[in-house]
């Protein structure tokens, strides 16, 4: 068995799992965080995307042991019961999620992009989302939603909201 301890959505958690457990299985089965989905299990579809140490990764391609000691952000850590994250707000307002299965992954890819770049070009957004497949063909609205989220986030940083916003579970 492999013992792992990691910070998930700001909370430290431990588990002892068989070595062949992926990070995705660890999150879904051990920690009951079912937001990340199993879509293709080979790193093509991006439904399992989570953010590890600030970078978007396919959690189906990472062993739980590799995530030991790291900081993991899942879709469950993006909002609080009080507030939606601006990305969630923008996706909701744009109607960018249809069946929703790809959604958690897309939102986290968008988060990883916007953490680095608050004013991404359409091409940069396309590049950041190219690892997230949507078969409902909703990409246009997703790109609009990311642009809208970027606008909301820029506004926020301009108004110097320095007080810690609880909904932004930055790892």
């Amino acid at each position: 068995m492999t013992d792992v301890t990691m910070t998930i959505n700001g909370q430290t958690r431990s588990a002892s799992v068989p070595p062949e457990t992926t990070l995705l299985q660890l999150l879904r089965e051990n920690f009951n965080l079912t937001g990340a989905k199993l879509g293709c299990d080979v790193g093509d579809c991006g439904a399992c995307t989570v953010i590890v140490d600030g970078q978007a990764v396919n959690s189906c391609l990472m062993l739980a042991g590799q995530a030991d000691g790291r900081q993991v952000l899942t879709i469950e850590g993006l909002a609080s019961r009080e507030h939606l994250h601006p990305i969630q707000k923008a996706f909701e307002n744009s109607g960018a999620l249809q069946c929703g299965f790809c959604g958690p992954g897309v939102l986290l890819s968008a988060k990883a992009l916007l953490d680095d770049n608050l004013d991404p070009s359409t091409q940069e957004i396309r590049d950041a989302l190219s690892g997230n497949l949507c078969r409902c063909t909703g990409y246009t609205k997703m790109i609009e939603a990311v642009q809208e989220a970027a606008r909301l986030l820029r506004e926020e940083s301009r108004t110097q909201l320095t007080h810690a916003r609880p909904e932004v579970a930055t790892p």
Partner: peptide
Amino acid sequence: NEHSRVLERDKLDIAEPLSDVELRLPA
């Protein structure tokens, strides 16, 4: 900005060791 990503990798500062009770909580 406050969303800036954590660039320091491989470092997890657990200031105080967590109790067994805390570690058993669902995430």
